[in-house]
Design a protein around this nucleic acid. Structure first.
Lengths: 208, 208
DNA sequence: TGGTAATATGAGGCTTGCCTCACAAATCGA
DNA sequence: TCGATTTGTGAGGCAAGCCTCATATTACCA
């Protein structure tokens, strides 16, 4: 039960130049993990993408796992900020604009979402942090929902949050659809689906 | 532009013993790809799982890609058979039992679905066959829907089919949820979602 | 029963990818 | 300016994984 990943010197950057490097490396990691998945993305390629030699990469990240953790943290922070932006809309707006806001928001963070998805799925057992993030994200969405639908029992609110988060993945897949006509059509179906579902939740909240 | 994958002798089995071997190998491939994903599953492990030496595996499949293709075909055939089983229910039943039937059906084929998902996603460019299968699966579901909702314009039917197939992935994720209470709750939400959505489609079909 | 085609087997060749290490350059504090 | 600390750099060690090949064994057929 000794701490893993303490290879030799996983030192954090101490100077401005180091922090910039780290940031560039993480950014390259986000892009590559999102594009090719955890396994297929190589450390050599990450370094190249950041215009850094491989040695610099290992200067700050003692392993591929460590890099993945950092990428995960950055993406989580960004998505969390995005959710905060939607929180006010969610509290008051009618259902259709709320659904639209939700769908639009995601378009801007598809890369981050994709990176998180691979990193969580391909390393499920490896990193307990992933499970933690999942839970906190769910709690966040549940909190937003609770404000909008106060009449709902908390348990149902949590379940709805769970399902909504899953729907995000679909939104991403739809956004990746190459044919523009199909993309628009399916996206519209997804919009309808979301509206119908949340309107039902609203009714239940008002009755409850 | 010469045909790839013609390494030396991708020969098909000619005798009963060979066919049995091939079947066992493909089966092992289904299980391992589903469990660990395309990249993480190793040929050595596939062979071990089928209680076959590595040489036997390469006797019948000249490459990992070739094995993946075979696994894909087998899973596709099984899922197609499953869809056929639901076709009659879909034509006549009320929406809620239809949704239940759909959700229940998938529980039995989760392994196959997971295997197909990895093999298609991790080899998107590699195999045009994957795109083919995707299209034919969509067409199949659209056909089932067209019978149930004849008043819908064909384009909308296709879009609904597209979205429903995406929902399958969510059903699978929900089924994998460890906590039984959460699992039941979210599954029920998904059921509600499906019912609301298809009832809307039904209304549209009757009006149209 | 002998001959031929099919199947069995597993040691290694070869490549790829993670990671190390020894040494060079840059930057900061005094 | 001088030492100390941080950062830069890339050749190569090492392990893992895909695949080959030479050879042995089995099953079918005339």
């Amino acid at each position: 039960m000794s701490t893993p990943n303490d290879r030799h010197a996983p030192r954090a950057p101490k100077r401005a130049r180091g922090r910039k490097r780290v940031s560039e490396l993480v950014e390259a990691g986000v892009a590559l993990f999102a594009e090719k998945g955890y396994d297929a993305a190589t450390m050599t390629e990450v370094a190249a993408r950041a215009a850094a030699p491989i040695g610099s990469l290992y200067q700050f990240f003692p392993s591929k796992e460590a890099l993945a953790d950092a990428v995960l943290e950055r993406c989580d922070a960004q998505l969390d900020a995005a959710l905060a932006a939607i929180e006010n809309i969610a509290a008051a707006a009618a259902i259709p604009p709320l659904v639209d806001a939700f769908l639009n928001l995601l378009l801007g963070f598809e890369r981050e979402r994709a990176a998180m998805a691979t990193l969580i799925e391909s390393r499920a057992e490896a990193s307990t942090r992933a499970a933690e993030l999942k839970r906190s994200r769910r709690a966040r969405v549940a909190q937003i929902l609770a404000r909008r639908f106060p009449g709902l029992p908390p348990e149902r609110t949590r379940n709805i949050a769970h399902l909504l988060i899953q729907l995000i993945k679909i939104a991403a897949n739809v956004a990746a659809e190459p044919d523009p006509e199909t993309r628009a059509g399916v996206r519209n179906e997804l919009r309808t689906l979301g509206i119908l579902y949340l309107q039902d939740a609203e009714r239940a909240s008002e009755l409850g």
